[in-house]
Design a binder for these strands. Structure first.
Lengths: 221, 221
DNA sequence: GTGCGCTTTACGGAAAACCATAATGAGTGT
DNA sequence: ACACTCATTATGGTTTTCCGTAAAGCGCAC
């Protein structure tokens, strides 16, 4: 079993649950951090000292507080780590069940497991640790679909970006200008209209207001 | 200190954290449930047996799964309990920081404490338990504002109604017609425009989309 | 009654969103 | 080179929202 594990999770109670689970698995050397930057530092330091971590268990969302952070989310942490320390195993442990996000983490960032927090969270996590230790991949039942078919009912990052700007009060025209200056494509007003129209149809929304309201409900923005 | 406590929380790892905290406070009789309905049943049963719970610590959101539930959220559980068992102390322990929701829980449902999950979650919870035990109220720093009467309080029922219809995709014209047939005054398109304009100024929103998004964030609609 | 303050309603123009359709362009396969 | 598909961009017209201003309605004091 793994000997040295790092847990990155901003909520201390979840940290406790994970900690207890790791102990039950017989893992003795467990470090915990509440900030992404700390996780990176700790891993760097351990590698430098010649006793690197073998496994990282990390959340995705870390709420911002007074401390200013370079890495603001688990995603950026994972990206950074998988580049610098490809041999480090990573398990993402998050409440986020948006398929698109999981897919990109698995396929692009190459995390070793994705476990959904929830009623079965810790049991799944336990399974995941076993699997990852045996060089297998693990994905919670809730988001298994993310690996299979590309269900079209998904919302990609571009669209989320678009909806976020909308919800912040920008007009479609202003968003178009913004995308042009930031070299985000497509950027024409026409394309933005078209994309929003697609989303409205997709989610049976009458107008942009309802669309944004629905996305808020789902927690997508 | 409390002797008999029930914890309602669907995530088992958080349950572990809360459990550990309660143990540290010297509380020995701790029951845990993962469904709202179970919480209600357990409390009823304990009261019937003559050894009622003294404190309930509950989450707000319980994700639905295969088990069909009568009570779907912590809110409904709290409402039900505060009616039937007014002497039961209730602490809400949730990640939800929408002020309006907190306000209604504190003022209408009369919960004894509202603790935000987060980095300081368990420490705050510990404080809250002490305070509640001494018949004081406790509210996490993050949502202290919810108790002070401030801007969000100045939205009346008519405006909430209006915003809700907006968020459901009705046009201002349609809302006007709806209000006319339902004898809700004012109902003219002009008045609706004016009211929305007032709200936009009040909340510094650029347009109706942003306004609805902000109201969603605050939990007003 | 008249005057005053406030709310509701009405109207018109500008801006933005909505909608259909057409043109352009990039990539693919033959 | 050609046809074909698909995404992006462009264009014009209709509806809705946004915004200012003005008129009508109403309670109230004098």
């Amino acid at each position: 079993m793994f000997a040295k594990v790092l847990v990155a999770e901003d909520m201390e109670d979840i940290n406790k649950g994970v900690y207890a689970t790791l102990r039950e698995l017989g893992i003795t050397e467990i470090d915990q951090v509440q900030y992404c930057d700390d996780a990176l530092l700790r891993i760097k330091r351990a590698a430098y000292d010649g006793s690197p971590f073998e496994l990282l268990i990390t959340d995705l969302s870390f709420v911002a507080d007074h401390r200013t952070q370079k890495l603001s989310s688990g995603e950026s942490l994972v990206q950074e780590l998988k580049q610098s320390y490809p041999e480090l195993k990573i398990i993402v442990y998050s409440i986020d069940n948006r398929l698109q996000k999981v897919r990109s983490l698995i396929n692009e960032s190459c995390v070793n497991a994705y476990v959904c927090k929830g009623r079965r969270g810790l049991r799944d996590l336990s399974d995941a640790i076993f699997m990852v230790y045996n060089n297998k991949r693990y994905v919670s039942q809730e988001v298994q679909n993310a690996l299979r078919s590309n269900s079209t009912l998904e919302v990609d990052d571009y669209e989320i970006e678009l909806l976020k700007h909308l919800s912040k009060g920008l007009s479609q025209d202003e968003i178009s200008e913004l995308f042009k200056t930031n070299n985000i494509s497509p950027s024409s007003l026409s394309s933005i209209e078209k994309r929003l129209n697609k989303l409205r149809i997709q989610f049976n929304a009458n107008n942009a207001i309802q669309l944004v309201a629905m996305m808020k409900d789902v927690g997508l923005i």
